[in-house]
Nucleic acid binder design. Sequence first.
DNA 1: GCCGTTTTCGGCCCGACTGTTTTCAGTCG
Length: 573
Amino acid sequence: MKVDSAKICLIFREMADFLSIKGENPFRVRAYERTAETLEHLPGDLEELHRGGRLADIPGIGKGMLEKIDTILNTGRLPAHEKLKAEIPEGVRELLFIPEIGPKTVKLLHGTAKVANISDLEQFVKSGKLRDLPGMGAKTEENILRGIRLYRTSRARILLGKALPIVEEIVAELKNKASTWIERISPAGSLRRGKETIGDIDILVSSANSHPIMDAFVQLSPVEEVLAKGETKSSILTRQGLQMDLRVVLPDSFGAALQYFTGSKPHNINLRERAIKRGLKINEYGVFTQSGEKLGGKEEEEVYNLLDLPLIPPELREDRGEVEVAEAGKLPKLLENPEIKGDLHVHTQASDGTASIEDLIEKAKEKGYEYIAICDHSSSLRIGGGLSEKMLLAQIREIRNINCHLTDFQLLAGSEVDIKKDGSLDYPDDILKQLDIVVAALHTGFKQDEKTITDRVVKALQNPFVRIFAHPTGRLLGEREPYAIDLDKVLEVAKDKGIWLEINAQPQRLDLTDVWVMEAKKRGVKLAINTDAHNLQGLDLMTFGVVTARRGWLESSDVINTVPLEDLLKNLR
DNA sequence: GCCGTTTTCGGCCCGACTGTTTTCAGTCG
């Protein structure tokens, strides 16, 4: 029997929640959470990894968890889980997801007040009965009702690409309103780590005087509601329903605080445990000896150095082995934006884009590129204004013609060729061979089963003219799940055929994902970071692709569009 | 439940803010 790995992760998540509601040892709860977290980010087939004994090497997965994984893989169920699930109604677990409500409150609500779901809770609070419970007063009533509202409306994470401009605006306004007091300012949290989606936004400021900054913060123009205001920490809710936390620390602690608030949480826990082993203590104010002597904290790098580590780039701080690799002095020299020499997947107004070739060239030159590949859609993709064979041939001629007049820059004639339902390509080979670069992609048949889709892609990648497989999983964050594709198999074929996999830089795609990027690198498969731009501004999305590459530990040598034009052309021949 | 260069038992990251409390528990990140 084949057990869905998402189902296994859910079982461990639910175990953690159930046990926390029951008031179990929080460390035991954390062990389940940690296992779920680890399994969720594991590339490859869980069952295969388990049979190969590879799970046993992962920190945090011990004998007990291995046995449970084994049980689930063999039987599809976990008895302990089923017992708890029968005991705790589904709606009760959901109470945990409401902000301001934690395991203790859920236990109280369910155990004493027999509240079984969110609407129960709402009624219970509105009827005034909540106040009869110990420790519950008027403010808590208000907070819980707001929490319910928040949970029902806007608790979804937002795209990195959406969060970034909002943060830039807020930082600018704050700088403007409290410039006298702000020494340094930086976003922190998952935004700084470049995660594809952001929950809350964290901003860190160093200053000798926090009061005027806090005052300015809670009066910023996007503020809808002030959730908390203190001397070092304040939280607000923006009109878009986004929570934003501001922390203010003294200048001598800026580095330690930035490290601390950048996270991730598991990364920080790892560092702190490491500190303890060295007789040190880390908090957001600095690194201290046991006797309380401060050793550093002004710069982030000091924190790492005091733990005998080099500075670890924020994108790597996910507790995926970065601390151990840093200790061994083997951190990758991560890809940087200026190393990108061109963009190999760009649309024009000939299909569903809005930019002209001329404008694209100008913009690309401004960005310091040496080349871009024009890759409009192929004929069968009617919705994307796909080019007929005749139109494509005309575009190729146009591109060759324009190239005659270009110096220090070259257009590549390409196409984003649709992989049809049977795995054949949308243009015949005698057309494909006239192109400089062929980017193959799926745009239809997303509901096919895993074997059908994988076979289809594998067949397409066998075509000798295909060089790039675009947006390999087809996911659209928050809109569409990835199609069922066996990426393991795709990587194998890509390695064999010298196909480059795309990191599509569109913020709602970021496809491949960081963990699969890392896996591709491990397997020796090269990546192409492309914007898939449909307008001029679209070319600026490259930075999101680079961030994803960095989160996948890529160096410039892992990425094909870091090579100069001449080498790229050699490669394409 | 995990883990071990002081430990196979007894720890397990650390602090801010809030609300309901007269000294602290719960939640959050």
